Amino acid sequence: MKAAILKSFGAPLAIETLPEPLLGTGEVIVDVVAAPVLPYANEVFSGERRYLLTPPVAPGCGAVGRVRAVGPDATRLAPGDWVFCDPTVRSRDGGLSPDITLQGWSARGEGGQRLQKHFHHGSFAERIRVPTENASPLGPLDDAEAARWCALVTLLVPYGGFLKADLRAGETVLISGATGNFGSAAVAVALAMGAGCVIAPGRNETVLEDLKRRFGLRVRTVKLGGQEEEDRERMRRAAPGPIDCVMDLLPPSASTLPVRAALMTVRPYGRAVLMGGVGMLGGAGLELPYPWIMRNCITLHGQWMCPPEAVLRMASLVRSGLLRLEEFDVTAFALDDANEAVTHAAAHGGPFKLTVLRP
Rank of each mutant, 00 (worst) to 15 (best):
G10E: 07
A254N: 02
D81L: 03
P252R: 06
V32C: 06
S8E: 15
P39G: 05
W82T: 02
V318W: 11
L312K: 13
P131R: 00
R49D: 09
P137R: 07
C150K: 06
T132S: 12
A125I: 11
D142C: 00
P307A: 13
C61I: 11
R90Y: 14
E326G: 14
T179C: 03
L174N: 05
A58W: 07
K212C: 10
R76W: 04
A4C: 07
K164M: 06
P21K: 13
A254G: 02
A261C: 10
A192W: 10
D329T: 09
G60A: 09
I100A: 07
H120P: 08
I128G: 02
A284W: 09
K353A: 03
R148Y: 02
A238W: 14
D73W: 10
W292P: 07
P131Q: 00
S8G: 13
A63N: 05
T101G: 10
F352E: 01
V207M: 00
A151K: 01
E326T: 14
E16C: 13
E126L: 08
R68A: 11
D73P: 10
S106K: 09
W105G: 00
R260Q: 15
A69H: 04
L224S: 13
R220G: 06
E309Q: 13
H118W: 08
M1L: 12
M235Q: 12
L250D: 00
A334W: 05
A3L: 05
A254E: 01
A346L: 13
G285N: 12
M193Q: 14
A41E: 14
E110R: 15
C61S: 12
R324A: 05
L152I: 10
V64A: 04
A347G: 07
F9V: 08
V44E: 03
P308T: 06
D143H: 09
V83L: 04
E110H: 14
H121V: 04
D99P: 00
N204S: 03
G122I: 04
M305G: 05
E233Y: 08
R90P: 04
H118R: 11
G112Q: 03
R232H: 08
L281F: 09
H301G: 09
P19F: 07
A78D: 03
L317F: 12
V57R: 11
L263M: 14
E48H: 15
F333K: 03
R295D: 14
